[in-house]
Design a protein around this nucleic acid. Structure first.
Lengths: 341, 341
DNA sequence: ATGAAAGCGCTAACAG
DNA sequence: CTGTTAGCGCTTTCAT
């Protein structure tokens, strides 16, 4: 069942069927109705591949994420998909799982399917791989990279805003020994958070001495708390580079009989959906995944629609801010707690 | 840059290029090498749409889920994607978000992109919508539906196994008043769990009296515990129809100062990844999402590959089983706990 | 406003 | 074993 069959049955040319289906305004309403009738009767659906082939537009947008099982991403994927269907696009979702081979595959898959643009919402990506995409002038959206070429748009995250709020919130609660569990140093986004923490502490005259390195996983968070517990001067509060880390810290605290927030205050980062499901609900810096996805999609769509190289705004900013829940409380020394026992 | 260009530069015909690229064994290795050289030099990637159009094979598989943000699904999507790339397929992911309009769109999108098969791994789907797919003889994989037509494969979940283990585990811990928080009655999968609970209780001479209805959300779980707390004879243990419900119960328990597991034992269902991240880690019945995805993919691929209607095995079973963690303990009456205060 | 016809990039007969 | 050629299903000039 194809266009020609519809044309035959509706007694019009294939051109007319094509026009009718695509709502070209110049077609005689009479004919259009006749066409649509046949279309509905036969349950005809146009073949997208043929369409793409002739029009040169695949109506597919690429979305590269790190891992869909990382709780940070599902919301992004969902929002992206939602916007895509609204705009008559499909999305080609690939995950790198931090594997160079998979990253290369990702790029290949994107090119083979002739995506019209790609959003790279992943932590760290081999720059060189994107050369293929750039070479083909495929519009690209990044997070947290430096200013790029035309056709490359960048979403900048304002980490400082939220982290400063977190630190000040903790300080107001009389915490002075505030630790930070950093993310993997190879990630720009992790580094930026650490810097924001240091700056926020310095700003209010606190020493950001206690910084341990995690890896943005729950296990890393668990290890980080153990390390913190071994320190001479134990912190009364800890800010984590992401929520998974914070969850790991909470989990490890539970195993040590440390009660959150009375014994230790914890602040996360990201505000993944599950943060609010923890016991206690996690106070965290929100970096709206939904908003991020919306910005990325919108930017991509704009870029795709742009014919010429009229370099418009290609920098976007996403603000972060503290969400107060119940994992922070007034400072109280761990040592005090132990003495009471 | 297309096949013809490669042909021209390699001084062979387009047919030869096509053959070389597709690793047809009969091509002269000499020529093949020449072709590949040019391909690599130019960074040529075949156009999948053209390929699909002429071959009649899109190399796309559909995957319909309820909501990617539902923690049950990311693992499934990941596994599916992984298997897909391994087999040179793309996946077209759609979510119904329990919205009839979105379900219809899902089906339309599948058909327009000419998917070769669809896995419907969703809770509840308007049967009638699938008519379009069935009509086009698109192989379909379902979970938990009755025996279907040829080309329709069904994955049956053995709920009883895991739930029985859960109930017996609780009974061994001296619990006798074991409550169940059911899922939405409109879902077959939820109903089946409730039945499995009843049967498991009856089997060991316990009365499954305390059954409250949740909705498979965390909020539903929270409400369920409130309801349970209002009952005359409060349960000492509760089995939940899914993990989100269990997490809701835990969350509400926290708000009431009820300690898990000493005051109340909790068992979940699904074993979503985050179950092990809870405090305490949630004991739950595992229904392996990874395995489910693997079965679904394998079944789909088999069905797609099958030329004739040689009706082979089209029933698969997924077993469930209890994963012990730390949300259950020996029975102890809530009333006792209160008296102690 | 409608139709005839060319052709998007590729594969698969078919011939040689 | 390699090349020639005819489409796959659709959109889009170009005439009419």
């Amino acid at each position: 069942m194809d266009l020609r069959e519809i044309a035959r049955r509706a007694k019009v040319s294939t051109a007319t069927v094509s026009r009718a289906i695509n709502h070209v305004s110049t077609v005689n309403p009479q004919l259009a109705k006749r066409v649509w009738k046949v279309v509905d009767e036969l349950g005809y659906f146009p073949n997208t591949q043929a369409r793409a082939l002739v029009s040169g537009r695949s109506r597919i947008l690429g979305l590269i994420v790190s891992e869909i099982t990382n709780p940070f991403f599902p919301e992004i994927v969902q929002t992206f998909e939602h916007l895509a269907v609204e705009n008559n696009y499909e999305i080609l979702l690939t995950s790198t799982v931090n594997d160079p081979k998979r990253m290369e595959q990702s790029v290949r898959r994107m090119i083979e399917r002739r995506v019209e643009g790609v959003a790279i919402l992943t932590f760290g990506m081999e720059e060189s791989l994107l050369e293929h995409l750039r070479f083909r002038k495929v519009p690209l959206v990044f997070v947290d990279v430096g200013p790029g070429a035309p056709g490359i748009v960048n979403i900048r995250i304002n980490y400082l805003n939220g982290i400063r709020q977190a630190v000040q919130h903790l300080a107001a609660l009389r915490h002075t020994r505030i630790a930070f569990v950093a993310g993997p140093p190879r990630l720009k986004s992790a580094l930026a958070r650490t810097e924001a923490f240091k700056a926020s502490m310095a700003e209010i005259g606190l020493l950001p001495e206690v910084i341990v390195t995690g890896d943005h996983t729950m296990e890393g968070g668990m290890r980080a708390l153990v390390e913190l517990l071994g320190a001479r001067d134990q912190p009364t509060a800890v800010v984590c580079s992401n929520d998974m880390t914070a969850i790991g810290v909470m989990r490890e605290a539970y195993d040590h009989g440390i009660t959150i927030p009375t014994d230790l205050s914890i602040v996360g980062f990201d505000d993944i959906r599950l943060a609010q499901f923890m016991t206690p609900p996690l106070t965290t810096v929100q970096m709206s995944q939904k908003e991020l996805a919306q910005i990325a999609f919108r930017a991509l769509l704009d870029e795709v629609g742009r014919e010429s190289r009229s370099t418009q705004k290609s920098e976007y900013e996403l603000i972060t801010s503290l969400i107060l829940r119940r994992s922070t409380a007034m400072a109280r020394l761990l040592n005090d707690a132990h003495r009471e026992q």
